[in-house]
């Protein structure tokens, strides 16, 4: 079986991607567009998604993810192979990159003012991210905020937005022109799909931004918008819970998070009205900050 080798230029990193699964290759093209290239000088990571060998080729076929020779995950059903590749690339960054403090958070910005949305799965973070990204906000990241140590600066790591379950239909209705991957059904997160952010976010994928606020989102069916400002201690604890590599980088991670929390306000919001959220963010965090 022939394997395709291509490269993803996703500043600040570059990936060599190898796959022998045709729909993975076509999804890459659909989602990454011109970021997918045929040659690159200096790939940082060498990832591959391959069909599992043996009888599993024919019976409930599976896919395996490799980062070079390392296999960090159990094999998954082959129809989930593309999602697996996206998660595998996240794994590469989260487990190797130690020169940023990495937070599990979406990052959206107006100009160079960024808001972080750290949140556990199920909080509606990705739906909010997708909506904002297609309504005039710039997406810096869907899953990982890369913070420069001892600063408030976030380095963009633009990647597709991972939407789950009900939000898949919602997003398809909202953005009929969007570049969607195929659906990976029945994963540990439910059904998932990856949506490419608008071209403008891709265009600015090397421009850093300054954090001006942290918002912990909670989607709540019966609430238009409730906003609670957190104390700095509360904000810190929630922030640190979402940090990937903070235990490894030690002191630098701790003091960077303390420093960010000291300088910007943090809020917990409960909402069902996305434009009300956008309005609040603009007034309270973007226009209010200097």
């Amino acid at each position: 079986m022939s394997s395709s080798v291509q490269y993803l230029l996703l500043p600040p990193f570059c990936f060599e991607v190898k796959t022998d699964i045709p729909f993975v290759a076509s999804n890459l093209k659909q989602v990454y567009g011109p970021r997918l290239i045929d040659s690159a000088e200096c790939p940082d990571y060498f990832v591959s998604v391959q069909k599992a060998e043996g009888i599993r080729k024919f019976y409930r076929p599976q896919a395996r993810f490799f980062s070079d020779q390392q296999e960090p995950f159990q094999p998954l059903q082959q129809q989930q192979a593309y999602a697996m590749l996206e998660w595998g690339m996240n794994w590469c960054v989260a487990s190797h990159e130690m020169q940023y403090v990495i937070i599990h958070a979406a990052v959206l910005a107006k100009g160079n003012k960024a808001i972080l949305f750290p949140a556990p799965p199920g909080s509606g973070k990705s739906t909010l991210t997708a909506w904002l990204a297609f309504h005039g906000w710039r997406l810096l990241s869907d899953e990982m905020a890369l913070i420069q140590p001892h600063s408030r600066q976030v380095t963009p790591f633009v990647r597709p937005i991972c939407l789950k379950n009900n939000s898949i239909q919602l997003a398809k209705a909202w953005f009929p022109e969007g570049n969607f991957s195929t659906v990976a059904s029945d994963t540990h997160k439910g059904d998932v799909i990856h949506l490419s952010p608008p071209e403008s976010s891709w265009q600015q994928h090397t421009e850093p931004a300054e954090i001006v606020g942290i918002v912990f989102p909670n989607y709540k069916v019966d609430t238009t918008l409730d906003i609670y400002q957190l104390t700095k201690t509360q904000g810190f604890m929630q922030f640190a819970t979402n940090a990937f590599n903070y235990g490894v980088i030690g002191t630098q991670g701790f003091s960077t998070l303390c420093n960010v929390i000291e300088q910007v306000p943090s809020f917990e919001i409960f909402y069902n009205d996305l434009s009300a959220v956008s309005e609040f963010l603009l007034q309270e965090l973007i226009d209010g900050s200097c």
């Binding site: 201690t233 810190f236 490894v248 002191t251």
Partner: peptide, 24 residues
Amino acid sequence: ITHSFSDESGTVFFNQVTGETLGV
């Protein structure tokens, strides 16, 4: 190591070896 926040909302502790974090 430790940090007390300027809004006097409390203090956080961090064990540099185990990564354990505590806020009070």
